[in-house]
Nucleic acid binder design. Structure first.
Length: 98
DNA sequence: CGCAGTCTAGCAC
DNA sequence: GTGCTAGACTGCG
């Protein structure tokens, strides 16, 4: 199992309507490479299967997305997550801590 | 606001 | 096969 495979697998476990952060994922994998987590999601070719739009910065900001942050924001809103000015509302409430 | 830390994938040699 | 660079980040000064 490759590093990115683990990242993707964890990301896929995030329930609908919840989000998590790069930092949490890295920590779950016993590493401090949050940067590498971002890379893994960026390189992943299965944006449909992997809900990488549910992964955000540690402070609740959207961060980046292959298809554009706008698209990411829309997807999150569609799942019931409120977004305001590129930032997640009730971030701490919907944060998924695995 | 700017710099450094940390890890992986991708491309070059 | 080895080495260097960039990347969807974070934390500290």
């Amino acid at each position: 199992m490759q590093f990115k495979e683990k990242v993707l697998k964890l990301t896929r476990k995030i329930p609908k309507g919840r989000v998590t952060t790069y930092k949490l994922i890295a920590g779950k994998l016993k590493t401090r490479a949050y940067r590498a987590v971002g890379t893994a999601l960026h390189k992943n070719k299965r944006l449909i299967i992997i809900p990488c739009h549910r992964v955000v910065n540690s402070n609740g900001f959207i961060g980046g997305y292959s298809k554009g942050t706008k698209k990411k924001t829309e997807l999150l809103k569609k799942e019931g997550i409120k977004i305001k000015n590129k930032k997640i509302i009730n971030f701490e409430k919907i944060l998924f801590r695995f």
